[in-house]
Amino acid sequence: MPAVSMTVNGKPVRGDVESRTLLVQFLRETLRLTGTHVGCDTSQCGACVVHVDGVAVKSCSMLAVQADGAEVLTIEGVATGDTLHPMQEAFRQNHGLQCGYCTPGMIMTALDIVRRKGHELDDHTIREELEGNLCRCTGYHNIVKSIAAGARAMASGDPARQAAE
């Protein structure tokens, strides 16, 4: 079995995987990082979005062996200790989730949107950018609100106040 090593949430990890092991399976089943979800398994729903070498990818559509040597960031790696990341806090404050299944993928996608589009995001941009993330509870309204608030909070570095606005 091929051996893979990569950095996940800042920590070096190693593991033996089958060639066909998907990155999301390696994260969830080998590393027990179950915050990354599997929704559709066909790269449509976005529940499995993680960052690989700084960009958002669907971890169900990448082999674990292809992430060898990569820097991977999952939802478990975004908070600082017990303090939520401003984007997580914004989802909490704006009721950006109901069942929570899509939330890790939504937040990882949201961070990627901020990286590419900056901190002032209009609703149309956010909705277009979310085309690869499905939510079956909220109708997206509060997710869009959360991402706009989270993006602004990331700019100010004051998560609680900004996100609650």
Partner: peptide, 9 residues
């Protein structure tokens, strides 16, 4: 093409 995550790959 696809969505942002797909376009990264």
């Amino acid at each position: 093409i696809g969505d942002p995550a797909v376009r990264h790959r």
